[in-house]
Design a protein around this nucleic acid. Sequence first.
RNA 1: CGCGGGGUAGAGUAACGGUAGCUCGUCAGGCUCAUAACCUGAAGAUUGCCGGUUCGAUUCCGGCCCCCGCAACCA
Length: 496
Amino acid sequence: MKPFYITTTIPYVNAEAHIGHALEFVRADIIARSKRLSGYEVFFNTGTDEHGIKVFKIAEQLGLEPQVYVDQISIKFREIMPLLGISDDVNFIRTTDAHHIKAAQEFWNIVKKNGYIYKKDYSIKYCIGCELEKTDSELVDGHCPLHPNQDIEIVKEENYFFKFSAFQRQLLELYSSHPKLVIPGSRLNEIRAFVERGLEDFSISRLKSKMPWGVHVPDDDQHVMYVWFDALVNYISAIGWPDDVIQEKEAPGSFKKWWIESGGVVQYCGKDNLRQQSAMWQAMLMAAGLTQSQTIIIDGFVTGEGGIKMSKSLGNAVDPLEIVREYGADVFRYYVARELSPFEDSPFTVDKFKEAYNAHLANGLGNLVSRVMKMATANGIALYEGDKSRSDFSSTDEGVAAIKGYGEGFNGFDLQSASNVIWSLISKADSIIQERQPFKKIKTDRAEAERDILELLGRLEFIAKSLLPIMPETARKIIELIRKNEMPASPLFARK
RNA sequence: CGCGGGGUAGAGUAACGGUAGCUCGUCAGGCUCAUAACCUGAAGAUUGCCGGUUCGAUUCCGGCCCCCGCAACCA
């Protein structure tokens, strides 16, 4: 079986999971499931990023050891997975895992040995009020917005730096030779323009005296790693690197299989992560002598009504778990796949969600299942005689075209166009019932009506099978009903 | 002249050189197998503004206005 490796970015655990995380988990899972169904062996990775000053401070405020805090919050993220219908075999990496820490240090050693790590003075902008360093973008008029009356202190410290600037040409070559590296193409243009403007080396360590919660820099007990050389390495530590490379100890789930033979990792990330994933991380891989990622899919953001940023203070934030609690994982997955733009920002409101649920799941899919199964069961017309199907939609011209459109959607990671194929088949089936009226015909022309109903069952089965990656539980339920020739005990999606 | 994305019917979006499509909502008709569901039809858009290229522009080019994100260590 051909291997396929897909990963999400791993969320930082300074806050609980929000809808953007849920969206990314679900999208990656839909791709993972579809690959599995088309015969790939899949490694699906997600997890949590747990080091850094913010986590350290939060733990301090809560009066907890950092490790205790991250244990608590990491498990919350892990527990979300089954609630979203994420595949059971998803790998969940934590940057505090012993193996990951070892891998991050080994990665550092290799890059250093290759001459891409050096030390220099670094000016940190520090807010005394927050006791935190600040980035320019966090400052308003040169002051911390939380402490506008205090001056920002410039603290100089010696940090390790990564020679990002050395990779400008190689990165540009990579973008030219791999036009599908970043999806959608507009994001590739964006990152290319960024790299063309010139790269600055970036700092990859912090003084341990100020930031104790991090991976120790090898051979220097004054420093811990700053986020990049820690968190980004998870994509390879998750698949066993460096064991089978360094020690030539080939383990199952090895780096060679998942990173090399698969053709590289497919990564999902939000648009705020474009730079980190498609430039910084790729350069780090080059520096370590490793091959590049295969594809980086850039998600848009979920916004509130009218494209306004979602935030708790604005009161327009939607909690994915509340949605899942009320509607179930499959409905949320449907919404992510079909109602949100695959690559651009799209609004998510409870009203819109409910509207889509009623229109396309209750009235659409759910209602179709009821009407088809009613005609089949009431008249004793089953699709299967033993194991033999009496109507196979996939071999019809229409079926072949549907498979093509659906496949193209998935190949381009365009879940929306893939699911549109399914919903146009649902709509078509509704029209067929209306036009041919098998429910009426059954009284006058049984043979003809039976043919119609069998065709509808075949279509419904095709719809259900196509739905497996997106709405796995629902799809299985429908397939089961068809096999047993039964009505659903209660409506699949009750109107709300 | 920092970078990128966008402005299309009441709402959300698609098309990207050839009569502006889809979904929701609205209105009218039909059907009764179905979850007051389904089917058909209608109304509703001078495709942000101005100019250019073209036989023809929502689609290409130039200018302007407005919105959003990013602007380097914010996951």
